[in-house]
Amino acid sequence: MLTVGKNEHDVERRLQAGRLRCPDCDGCLAGWGRAGQRTIWGNGWFRRIRPRRSRCRGCGRTHVLLPVDALWHRRDDVSVIGEALTRSALGEGVRSIARVLGRPEATVRAWIRRMRVIAESVRAAFTLVRAVLVSEAPALAAAPSPLADAVNAVLAAAAAAGQGFAELADIAARAPWEVACAVTGGMLLAPPIIGFRINMNHTLVAFGR
Score class of each variant (00 low, 15 high):
residue 86 T to Q: 15
residue 124 A to D: 14
residue 30 A to C: 09
residue 76 D to H: 13
residue 6 K to N: 09
residue 62 T to N: 13
residue 20 L to S: 12
residue 204 L to D: 11
residue 94 V to I: 15
residue 65 L to R: 14
residue 188 L to A: 05
residue 50 R to K: 14
residue 110 A to C: 03
residue 109 R to P: 01
residue 19 R to H: 05
residue 70 A to R: 08
residue 170 D to R: 12
residue 110 A to P: 02
residue 125 A to N: 06
residue 154 V to G: 11
residue 163 Q to F: 02
residue 36 G to P: 00
residue 14 R to N: 06
residue 118 I to G: 07
residue 78 V to H: 04
residue 177 W to M: 15
residue 43 N to V: 01
residue 13 R to T: 04
residue 97 I to W: 10
residue 152 N to F: 11
residue 76 D to F: 04
residue 5 G to E: 08
residue 45 W to H: 13
residue 154 V to Q: 11
residue 158 A to N: 10
residue 34 R to L: 04
residue 186 G to W: 12
residue 90 L to Y: 09
residue 112 I to A: 05
residue 91 G to Q: 11
residue 133 L to D: 02
residue 105 E to K: 12
residue 40 I to S: 07
residue 95 R to E: 10
residue 28 C to L: 11
residue 1 M to A: 15
residue 19 R to K: 13
residue 2 L to N: 15
residue 143 A to P: 14
residue 137 A to C: 05
residue 59 C to L: 08
residue 44 G to D: 01
residue 136 E to P: 04
residue 184 T to K: 07
residue 101 L to I: 04
residue 28 C to R: 15
residue 120 E to D: 15
residue 100 V to S: 04
residue 151 V to F: 14
residue 162 G to M: 01
residue 106 A to L: 10
residue 135 S to T: 04
residue 101 L to T: 03
residue 58 G to M: 11
residue 83 E to D: 10
residue 22 C to P: 00
residue 82 G to H: 14
residue 151 V to C: 10
residue 69 D to F: 08
residue 204 L to E: 11
residue 101 L to P: 03
residue 42 G to L: 12
residue 190 A to L: 00
residue 5 G to D: 06
residue 11 V to P: 02
residue 102 G to N: 01
residue 77 D to H: 13
residue 126 F to R: 09
residue 21 R to H: 14
residue 149 D to V: 03
residue 75 R to T: 09
residue 108 V to N: 06
residue 24 D to Q: 04
residue 55 R to L: 11
residue 164 G to N: 03
residue 10 D to W: 05
residue 20 L to Y: 15
residue 53 R to C: 07
residue 163 Q to I: 00
residue 25 C to T: 06
residue 42 G to M: 08
residue 152 N to P: 08
residue 196 F to G: 00
residue 9 H to F: 12
residue 116 R to I: 10
residue 170 D to P: 01
residue 24 D to M: 01
residue 140 L to F: 01
residue 108 V to E: 03
residue 82 G to L: 13
residue 199 N to S: 14
residue 105 E to F: 07
residue 75 R to M: 06
residue 54 S to P: 12
residue 134 V to F: 00
residue 180 A to M: 11
residue 92 E to G: 02
residue 174 R to K: 05
residue 194 I to G: 02
residue 106 A to W: 00
residue 19 R to D: 06
residue 8 E to Y: 10
residue 112 I to N: 05
residue 32 W to K: 13
residue 187 M to Q: 08
residue 142 A to N: 07
residue 94 V to A: 12
residue 105 E to G: 13
residue 128 L to W: 05
residue 102 G to R: 00
residue 67 P to S: 02
residue 8 E to F: 12
residue 72 W to H: 12
residue 207 F to T: 01
residue 74 R to I: 02
residue 170 D to L: 07
residue 156 A to V: 09
residue 47 R to C: 11
residue 152 N to T: 10
residue 86 T to D: 14
residue 14 R to W: 05
